[in-house]
Design a protein around this nucleic acid. Sequence first.
DNA 1: TCAAAAGTGTTAGAGGTACACCCATGA
DNA 2: TCATGGGTGTACCTCTAACACTTTTGA
Lengths: 243, 243
Amino acid sequence: MVQSSIIPNISVDCVIFAYDKGLLKVLVRKEFIPTAKGVELRYKLPGNHMLFNERMEDTASRTLLEQTGARDIFMSQFSVFSDLDRLMRNADEYSWIKNNGLIHERVVTIGFYSLIKLNQPKKIKLIDRAEWKNVDEAFDLIFDHKDILNAALKQLRIDMLLHPIIFELLPQKFTLGQLQHLFEIILDQKFDKRNFRRKISGMKFLVATEEWQEGVAHKPAQLYRFDKRLYNKHKKENFEFII
Amino acid sequence: MVQSSIIPNISVDCVIFAYDKGLLKVLVRKEFIPTAKGVELRYKLPGNHMLFNERMEDTASRTLLEQTGARDIFMSQFSVFSDLDRLMRNADEYSWIKNNGLIHERVVTIGFYSLIKLNQPKKIKLIDRAEWKNVDEAFDLIFDHKDILNAALKQLRIDMLLHPIIFELLPQKFTLGQLQHLFEIILDQKFDKRNFRRKISGMKFLVATEEWQEGVAHKPAQLYRFDKRLYNKHKKENFEFII
DNA sequence: TCAAAAGTGTTAGAGGTACACCCATGA
DNA sequence: TCATGGGTGTACCTCTAACACTTTTGA
């Protein structure tokens, strides 16, 4: 891809969430920023400038593919960030990215958030310098990327109550305990186990498989899966997901 | 403002809603497009290219001010439109806007929707060629503006259930009948009058004034107002609006 | 045998839904 | 006096919230 095909004033930034070992993770890229005090390690969200022959969704897919090696990842455009000083809040960060030659003084960025299954079925291969960070430990992000992350989380919290997107973070087959726990960590709110399961069991599109957990030091849980077809049938009547 | 300060690839389009005589209106601009068959009357949403020294909200405010003469109008950024052919789906429309000299081949537009009080308290003065159209009669919009309008409506329907924004469309003092009717026409759904009023009366931030409707050919209704302070107090406990 | 999560019912209260009549006003 | 929307109460039912114990497994 040639340099000239880049739209200089528009970029797409991706907030890629994953659920791993009971924690909500976000994908960040390590960057080493030279400052007066020496080289500082900072993080940024993955992103790219939009190309002239791309829709914003294409730029987002390209970024996801580039960072994780995965295609067909769930993504949702949630907000735009256009503050005049968004790249210039910190002089060191700005001169660093300016020196990388990729950037115009004024870049409006379109925020996408993505949900990705870490285990199955697609293999995830992070590129060099990309890493998963716990969402609540991702503070030292450059530019306005912390704002973007917070806005993504806020949108995710709304969307997950209205649409069945939470399953994008879980393996194909999961336990109700995992499902409940994932709700709890994203919403930062505890649910009563029995009430949660009663509500869930009213959802016809959550179907029990004949498989059980293995190798756990407690009573193994039955595995469930999300049935998209059943969901599409039922949502017409039920209007939406609504947990 | 000089031409050179325009960012050529980014625009903001505004879907401005209003409630008038029991109908939901949207502001459109008349455009006369020369075609092989003669001059055709088409409509477009108001919008502007972003300037280099503007945030997207500034571009939106500028557009609102320019079209209606009003400031401090409620607005909300809801989506971005970046399809490659979004300005070129129709050759006549494209050559018309290209001849107006304002446009680059590739423009990504940021969609805002606005809610505006037609009667009070600010005086609305539409500029030439702007007019209110019933939302369900706004079909012949150019470019992808019909898509933008539909997306705005969809977002409005979600937002109005979660946040107390519906009052932005009503006069400062309104009847419960108006409020219910406005819900009904936006959501395209009927509500039971008694149940609606019971629910409403649980909302402490909707306060009855000591004024009544005048000049109506039926029993005059009591006027209510939305109290933002009370809302801000109560929402902490109640989490949100949620109708 | 211990620790850890799975799995399961009941009750009380709150909130939702469905439904019909009289009232005040201007035309 | 008629048409129009305003204003009101009740009964049923569903959903929510709160709560504790037994089971199965690996370590």
